[in-house]
Design a protein around this nucleic acid. Structure first.
Length: 929
RNA sequence: GCGGGCGUGGCGGAACCGGUAGACGCAACGGACUUAAAAUCCGUUGAGGGCAACCUCGUGCGGGUUCAAGUCCCGCCGCCCGCACCA
C-alpha cells in the first residue's frame, strides 16, 4: 500500500475545489444562512501559527455548517492600512502600497495552502480604493447624521517624527521609535460620537442581544463604557475667605465662630454671591458625585489641574502654576500613578456647603482629580472614600462619618485607616438621618434639585473616538478647510478622495507626506470656490475594520452596501478572533453598525451574534550562553536538554510564551506544511487544548497528528470502493457489526455536539476512539479489510450482546455491513478538520461527488441507547463492584442484583443495610453500618 | 486596589445538572518486526502495598453540606487575565 503523501494529494484537492468553485457562496436563499468570519489579518508579510489556528477554527465551522445544509458565507480580506507599511517604506525605500500588496500576495498563497473553504471571490483589502471610497461616503453620512465632531483634544505628539502617537506607542514618556520625549499637544481632531450610543451599547450587553458573546468580553465592555449614576452639585464660593488661604482648613467644629458667609446664603432664586478671590467669572464650581448621600461628610472641594478654575488661578498665581506644572510632569504610567502621593494646592477660596449653613469647605487643586471624568471636580468625603481619606489625613482635614455600618454604635464608631464603603444607616446628616444609603441618595438628589443646586446625572467613562491620524497610509478623511466657510464636507460627487502618489523617498522625512503636497492639498472650497485646503489626516485603521464584514456580505460597485444582501447575511453568525480585540475593535464595530443603521445602510442592530475568542499559540523559548534568542529550528531538544544544531553548545530552555519575532520562538507554517501537510497542522492545532485556551506548539505533537492522518489512510485504503458495493443482506449481522454500528452512531452524535459547542479537542478525542473501534472491528467484520492487523482483536472476546438490534435495510451501506457505514461516517466526520485527507478517502471509498458537498452524517437515536447498563455499586460511597442490568430493569431488581454482587457482599458482611440509593442509569450506593 | 477566571498524573487536557476521577493525545517504559536503526504494530503507565484476588491514599490547603464532592458552601494559599486615582 502506498504511503499517504500529502505533498501530492493536498494540492490536487485544492485544485479540484477551485475548478469546481466549491466554496463560491451561492445565492440560494431557500436554505438558512450562516455567516462565519475570522478577524481578517494585517498583511505583515507572513502567516503565523496564530493565524492558522484562527482560520482553522473558522474553517471547521464553515465546513460543518455547509454539510448541515446551511448557505455559508466564509470570506477573507486584508486589514491593509497602517503604520508598519510606512515604517517599511522608511527602512527599505519601498512604497507602502507596493510593500502591502506584495505581502498580501505572499500571505494569500500561504493561506491557500491551509485548504480553507473560503469564497475568495469576495476578497478585498481595505487599502483598495473600491473599499475606502465607500468608507468616505459612510463618514459623510455619519457627519450629516450628527455622529461626527471636530474638536480640540490632547494627543501624544512626537516632536521628532512630527506625528501623533497612540498611547501604546509611548514608552516611559518617549516615542517608541524616535526616543524623543513625547509632548502633550492640543490638536483639532476628528471624533466619532460613540458616546451618543453609550446607553445602547451598554444595554445590549445585558438584554440578550449579545447572549452569544463570552461573559468576560461583555464584562470588559461594560467596564469600559463605565456607566455611573449620581449627581452634579454646584458649590458656591464664599466671600472673604482668602485670609486663611494657605493654612489647612480647621476642623469644622472650630469654625463655629461668626461665619462670614452665613449672611451670604442666597435670598432666593438668582441670588449669587461672587467671591472676590476667584478669577473673573467663577462664582461656583460644579462637582460630580455618585454618593450624594455622603454630602454631610464633605470636608473639602478639589479640582483637576486642567480645570478652568485652576487654570484661572495659574494666570496670576505663580505658585499655583508651578503646582499644576508639577502635576502634569507625573507620568501617566500605571506605576507612576500607583506611587504618586496625593497632593493638593490650597486655593484662596472656600465653598459653601449646600445643606449646612456656615460650613466652609476649602478648595484645592489636587493631582488625583481627572479633568476628563465627570466635571473635573469633586467634593471630598474622607470617611467614605479611600482617596479622600488619604488626602484629608495629609492635610489635616475633618473626617466625618455619615454612614453607620450595621451593628455599630453611633457614639463609638470612628474611621481609622480605612474608609467605610459599605451599606449602612445615615447619621450626622440632618434630614437624611436614619435612611439607607440608597434611599439617602434619592433623598439628597431630590433636595439638591429642589434647591436648584444641582441635578441627577449619569456619567460614562467611555470617550468619543478620535479617528484622526497624521499619516499617509490610511483612508483620507473627506473634508476641506476653507478660510471663509470653515470645515466643509467633500461633496459626494467628488468622491473618492484618492491617496495621491508620493515617491517612496517621501517617507524618510518625518511627518505626514500629505502635508507637503500642495498640488493635492490646495483645492477650491466646494461652497464659496475660494481658496481652501484638504484635510490631510487619515482615518484610524480601526475605522477600516469597523464595517468590512458588512462589505464582504453585500459589496456593490456603486454603493457601500446592498441593503437586501446586508440584511440577509448580517449579523455575522460566528465571529472568531483574539481576545485582545475585546474592547476596541468589537466596540467600534458595534458603534459603526448603529451609525450605519441610522443612516439607512442596513437594518441589523448588532454586527456579531456569536463571538468566540481563541487562545494563542505558544512555544518554548531558547537562548544561548550569551543570552541571544534562538529559533526552534536551530535547536535540538533531546531528553529535556537542548543544544545548538550547528555547534552542539548547550542551550537554555526558557518559559513557554506566545510566539513572537522578538523571542524567536516562531515556527513557520510554510515549513510545517511541507514537512507534514496542511491536514496534520490543522489537526494538531485544534486537538490538544480547548480552543479558548493557549496551545503549545510542539513538533512531537504535530508528528502525532501526522501519524493519525497516515493511520486513517491505512484504515480506509483497503476498503476501496466499499461505498459502491452491493451488500449481502441475507447474512445475519455479527455481534461485532452491532458493536461497530453503536460506535459509529455514538461518534456521530458526540462529534456533532462537540463541534456545535466549539469543543474541537473533544471532537478529536472522539474521532480517535472511533478510529480505534473501526480498526478493531475491521479484523473480523463481515467486510474485512485486506492487510488489516492479523491478530484477533481482544474486544471481540466479550460475551454476545443479549439483544442485538435487527439490521436495517436500505441505502448507502446502512445497517447491513457495519464497516462501510462506519468508514463513510468517519470520513465525513474528519472532513472539517482534515479536508484533503477526507476527499482522498471519500474518492477511494467510492463516495459520490466531493466530500465537502456531502451531507453531515445523522446519528440514529435507536443506536445510542443501550439495552444493558453496567452500573457501579458503592458501599458507603466507595466503589466495590459493578453489575450488569437491563436498561429497563426496575429499582427493586437493581437493588437485589447489587446486594448479591460478590464484592458488595464482602463489604456489607456483618453490617446492617440502612438505605439503598439507586440513581437510574448511573450508580447504586448501599449505605450500611 | 477593583473586577473576572483558574488550580486534576511526567505534560496538554477529559469528567453532562453532585453519581465509576484521569477519556483522548503527547512523553516514558516493555515487547513484536529488523543484521541494525527509523517507521509501524501490540502492551504498560496517578501514588503506595500485595504472588494474586484485592486493599489504602489521591483533583492547591483547611473546614462544612450530602447516601455520594474535582463539581456545592465557608475560610486560606497560589497563578492568570482585564481595568486602574473614574469621584
Amino acid at each position: 500500500m502506498a504511503r499517504y503523501n500529502p505533498k501530492e494529494i493536498e494540492p490536487k484537492w485544492r485544485q479540484r475545489w477551485d475548478d469546481e468553485k466549491a466554496f463560491l457562496t451561492s445565492a440560494d436563499r431557500a436554505r438558512p444562512k450562516y455567516y462565519v468570519l475570522e478577524m481578517f489579518p494585517y498583511p505583515s508579510g507572513r502567516i503565523h501559527l496564530g493565524h492558522v489556528r484562527n482560520y482553522a477554527m473558522g474553517d471547521v465551522i464553515a465546513r460543518f455548517k455547509r454539510a448541515r445544509g446551511f448557505n455559508v458565507l466564509h470570506p477573507m480580506g486584508w486589514d491593509a492600512f497602517g503604520l508598519p507599511a510606512e515604517n517599511a517604506a522608511m527602512q527599505t525605500g519601498s512604497h507602502p502600497r507596493d510593500w502591502t500588496y506584495a505581502n498580501i500576495e505572499a500571505m494569500r498563497r500561504e493561506l491557500k495552502q491551509i485548504g480553507l473553504a473560503i469564497d475568495w471571490s469576495r476578497e478585498f483589502a481595505t487599502c483598495d480604493v473600491g473599499y475606502y471610497r465607500w468608507q468616505q461616503k459612510l463618514f459623510l453620512d455619519f457627519w450629516q447624521a450628527g455622529l461626527v465632531e471636530r474638536r480640540e483634544s490632547y494627543v501624544n505628539w512626537d516632536p521628532v517624527d512630527r506625528t501623533v502617537l497612540a498611547n501604546e506607542q509611548v514608552i516611559d514618556g518617549k516615542g517608541w521609535r524616535s526616543g524623543a520625549t513625547v509632548e502633550r499637544k492640543k490638536l483639532s481632531q476628528w471624533f466619532l460620537k460613540i458616546t451618543d450610543k453609550a446607553e445602547d451599547l451598554l444595554a445590549a450587553l445585558d438584554d440578550g442581544r449579545l447572549k452569544g458573546w463570552p461573559d468576560n468580553v461583555r464584562l470588559m465592555q461594560r467596564n469600559w463604557i463605565g456607566k455611573s449614576k449620581g449627581a452634579v452639585v454646584r458649590f458656591r464660593f464664599a466671600d472673604g475667605t482668602s485670609a486663611r488661604a494657605n493654612s489647612p482648613s480647621p476642623h469644622p467644629e472650630e469654625q463655629k465662630a461668626p461665619s462670614p458667609f452665613e449672611t451670604l446664603r442666597p435670598q432666593g432664586e438668582g441670588a449669587f454671591c461672587v467671591s472676590k478671590d476667584a478669577p473673573d467669572g467663577f462664582r461656583d464650581v460644579e462637582i460630580y458625585t455618585t454618593r450624594p448621600d455622603t454630602l454631610f461628610g464633605a470636608s473639602f472641594i478639589a479640582v483637576a489641574p486642567d480645570h478652568p478654575l485652576a487654570q484661572g488661578f495659574a494666570k496670576t498665581d505663580a505658585k499655583a502654576a508651578a503646582f499644576i506644572a508639577e502635576c502634569q510632569k507625573t507620568g501617566t504610567s500605571q506605576e507612576a500613578i500607583d506611587k504618586a502621593e496625593k497632593k493638593g494646592f490650597r486655593l484662596p477660596l472656600n465653598a459653601e456647603h449646600p445643606f449646612i449653613d456656615g460650613r466652609a469647605l476649602p478648595v484645592y487643586i489636587a493631582n488625583f482629580i481627572l479633568m476628563g471624568y465627570g466635571t473635573g471636580a469633586i467634593f471630598g468625603c474622607p470617611a467614605h472614600d479611600a482617596r479622600d481619606l488619604d488626602f484629608a489625613r495629609k492635610y489635616g482635614l475633618a473626617v466625618i462619618p455619615v454612614v453607620l455600618p450595621p451593628g455599630e454604635d453611633a457614639a463609638s464608631f470612628a474611621i481609622g485607616d480605612e474608609p467605610y464603603l459599605g451599606p449602612g444607616t445615615l447619621y450626622n446628616s440632618e434630614f437624611l438621618d436614619g435612611l439607607s444609603v440608597d434611599d439617602a441618595i434619592d433623598a439628597a438628589v431630590r433636595k439638591i434639585e429642589s434647591m436648584g443646586a444641582g441635578r441627577a446625572a449619569t456619567q460614562f467613562r467611555l470617550r468619543d473616538w478620535g479617528v484622526s491620524r497624521q499619516r499617509y497610509w490610511g483612508c483620507p478623511i473627506p473634508a476641506i478647510h476653507c478660510e471663509k466657510c470653515g470645515v466643509v464636507p467633500v461633496p459626494e460627487k467628488d468622491l473618492p478622495i484618492i491617496l495621491p502618489e508620493v515617491p517612496a523617498s517621501a517617507f524618510r522625512t518625518p511627518g505626514n507626506p500629505l502635508d507637503r503636497m500642495p498640488e493635492w492639498r490646495n483645492v477650491p472650497c466646494p461652497e464659496c470656490r475660494g481658496h481652501a485646503e484638504r484635510e490631510t489626516d487619515t482615518f484610524d485603521t480601526f475605522v477600516d475594520s469597523s464595517w468590512y464584514f458588512a462589505r464582504f456580505a453585500a459589496a456593490r460597485e456603486d454603493r457601500p452596501l446592498d441593503r437586501a444582501d446586508a440584511d440577509y447575511w448580517l449579523p455575522v453568525d460566528q465571529y472568531i478572533g483574539g481576545v485582545e480585540h475585546a474592547i476596541l475593535h468589537l466596540l467600534y464595530a458595534r458603534f459603526f453598525i448603529r451609525g450605519m443603521k441610522d443612516t439607512g445602510h442596513l437594518s441589523v442592530e448588532e454586527p456579531f451574534a456569536n463571538l468566540f475568542t481563541q487562545g494563542m499559540v505558544t512555544h518554548a523559548t531558547y537562548r544561548d550562553d550569551e543570552g541571544q534568542w534562538l529559533l526552534p529550528e536551530d535547536v535540538i531538544v533531546e531528553a529535556g536538554k537542548a543544544t545548538r544544531a550547528d555547534t552542539g553548545e548547550a542551550v537554555t530552555i526558557g518559559p513557554i510564551e506566545k510566539m513572537s519575532k522578538s523571542k524567536k520562538n516562531v515556527v513557520s507554517p510554510d515549513e510545517i506544511v511541507s514537512k507534514y501537510g496542511a491536514d496534520a497542522i490543522r489537526w494538531f492545532i485544534l486537538s490538544d487544548s480547548p480552543p479558548e485556551r493557549d496551545v503549545e506548539w510542539t513538533d512531537a505533537g504535530c508528528n502525532g497528528a501526522w501519524k493519525l492522518v497516515a493511520r486513517i489512510w491505512e484504515t480506509v485504503e483497503p476498503a476501496k470502493g466499499a461505498l459502491m458495493k452491493a451488500h449481502d443482506l441475507s447474512r445475519a449481522p455479527a455481534d461485532a457489526d452491532i458493536e461497530l454500528r453503536r460506535a459509529t452512531h455514538g461518534a456521530i452524535a458526540a462529534v456533532t455536539e462537540d463541534i456545535e459547542n466549539f469543543r474541537f479537542n473533544k471532537a478529536i478525542a472522539r474521532i480517535y476512539e472511533f478510529l480505534t473501534a473501526i480498526r478493531k472491528a475491521a479484523g473480523v467484520s463481515s467486510l474485512s479489510l485486506q492487510g488489516a492487523s492479523p491478530q484477533e482483536p481482544r474486544s471481540l472476546n466479550r460475551p454476545p450482546h443479549p439483544d442485538p438490534l435487527p439490521p436495517k435495510t436500505g441505502g448507502e451501506g446502512e445497517g447491513t455491513w457495519a464497516l462501510p457505514e462506519a468508514l463513510s461516517a468517519l470520513v465525513r466526520l474528519i472532513a472539517p478538520f482534515t479536508p484533503h485527507l477526507a476527499e482522498e478517502c471519500w474518492e477511494t471509498l467510492g463516495g459520490e461527488g466531493l466530500v465537502c458537498n456531502a451531507p453531515w452524517p445523522e446519528a440514529d437515536p435507536a443506536l445510542l441507547q443501550k439495552e444493558t447498563l453496567i452500573l457501579p455499586v458503592q458501599v458507603n460511597g466507595k466503589r466495590r463492584g459493578e453489575i450488569s442490568v437491563a436498561a429497563s430493569a426496575e429499582t427493586r431488581a437493581i437493588e437485589s442484583a447489587a446486594l448479591s454482587e460478590a464484592g458488595v457482599k464482602r463489604h456489607i458482611e456483618g453490617l446492617t443495610v440502612r438505605k439503598i440509593v439507586v440513581v437510574p442509569g448511573r450508580i447504586v450506593n448501599i449505605v450500611a453500618s
